[in-house]
């Protein structure tokens, strides 16, 4: 039983780290603000969430488990709300999401320049 829990928690921890990593890569590689926010929010929710659940499995029953659970609830609430607020603020201050047609236009511009 212990080994099963260990394996499960390590799977969760590693996949959580993976999502955190992809979030970081996305933050650098994505073209505009909104898609970057999306990548960052993956780090916050899926990455941190999976890592926290993995840690909970390691912690066993007790006060630590309750604290980790509270951290999970808070971080899920706060980070998603923060993302929402950020995206809304960006939209309000005049930043438009990059759409497919934009990309085509910019691609045409670059090709016409060559």
């Amino acid at each position: 039983m212990d080994i099963l829990l260990d394996i499960l928690s390590w799977i969760l921890l590693i996949s959580g780290s993976f999502f955190t990593f992809t979030g970081a890569v996305g933050l650098f590689r994505f073209p505009d603000f909104f898609s970057r926010t999306h990548a960052a929010s993956v780090t916050d929710t899926l990455g941190a969430g999976l890592i926290l659940i993995g840690l909970m499995l390691q912690a066993g029953w007790g006060l630590v488990l309750a604290k980790l659970l509270l951290i999970l609830v808070f971080s899920l609430l706060a980070s998603t709300t923060a993302c929402h607020a950020m995206a809304k603020a960006a939209l309000k201050s005049g930043l438009k999401p990059l759409t497919y047609s934009d990309q085509e236009n910019s691609a045409e511009e670059t090709t016409s320049k060559h």
Binding site: F74, L77, A78, T81, H84, A85, K88
Partner: peptide, 11 residues
């Protein structure tokens, strides 16, 4: 900012 206000009320 309805979402912000509700979450803030919860927190």
């Amino acid at each position: 900012q309805i979402i912000l206000r509700i979450v803030a009320k919860m927190m």
